[in-house]
């Protein structure tokens, strides 16, 4: 069995270091916050203009003026700040955010990512994703390894319109933890119920198995 969404989020949380400022995208990335241990001090940034984002509000205390980038009502923690969209993206583009976690439809062996448009089918837009992949010091992609038909989403070359070129260095999929290097994908860890060979077989892009490759632990 591949990992479920919670397990992907849990594995990504291990990459979040004490003292980090982190931006989490919509979907699986949002779940990462649930697995940060209280021993780590982590500030979450929401690109609509909030640093120090807290959990959802208690029922009855929702505030229409306090939302996250997914337009959900949230809270602000002690030490939080509010700012304009220009300031928010100055933080992002200027390299002040330590880590961004976002979803993807495709990532290729050169580290390019596509996640904002399917020509003729889906026109939603990139929101802040292009700025985030261009600006964050470290980008981790949380994604499903294959689509519903079993086709690899880790491609030789992205087929969909790109969000960013050669900007992804790490992927946590439901199949494993993969680094993107000069030599293509390198499998570091695989889902406990799979084998390293099975992950390589399910991957279209060039993938090698790291010498110290091991099953994922949580």
């Amino acid at each position: 069995m591949p990992l479920n969404k919670e397990q992907i989020a849990q594995r990504i949380s291990q990459e979040v270091q004490d003292g980090y400022t982190v931006n989490l995208g919509i979907g699986i990335p949002t779940l990462v916050v649930n697995y940060i241990p209280p021993t780590k001090t982590v500030m979450f940034q929401s690109e609509n203009g909030l640093l120090g984002m807290g959990p959802f509000p208690l029922e009855g205390t929702e505030d229409a003026d306090l939302i996250n980038a997914g337009k959900q009502t949230v809270t602000a923690l002690k030490g939080a700040s509010f700012f304009s969209s220009a300031d928010s993206f100055a933080m992002i583009r200027g390299g002040h955010i330590d880590l961004t976690v976002l979803g993807a439809m495709e990532v290729d062996e050169n580290g390019s990512i596509a996640n904002w448009m399917v020509p003729g089918k889906m026109v939603k837009g990139m929101g802040g994703a292009m700025d985030l992949v261009a600006g964050a010091k470290n980008v981790i992609v949380a994604m499903q390894h294959v689509d519903k038909e079993g086709n690899s989403k880790l491609r030789t070359k992205c087929t969909l319109p790109l969000t960013g070129v050669k900007c992804i260095k790490k992927i946590v999929s439901d199949y494993g933890v993969i680094d993107v290097t000069e030599n293509g994908f390198v499998l570091r860890e695989y889902a406990p119920d799979l084998t390293a060979e099975a992950v390589v077989k399910a991957t279209e892009g060039k993938m090698t198995i790291a010498p110290d490759c091991k099953p994922m632990t949580f």
Binding site: E47, S84, S85, A86, S88, F89, I92, R93, S112, M126, G127, G128, A129, M130, D131, A134, G135, P161, L162, T163, G164, V165, K166
Partner: peptide, 27 residues
């Protein structure tokens, strides 16, 4: 892109006709 949109508006209001950004290069 959201950050580019914010900056384009900021620039417009600040009398800056254009600026360079890393966002969207190659897309």
């Amino acid at each position: 892109p959201q950050g580019t949109l914010a900056e384009r508006l900021r620039a417009g209001g600040a009398g800056i006709p254009a600026f360079y950004t890393p966002t969207g290069v190659g897309t």
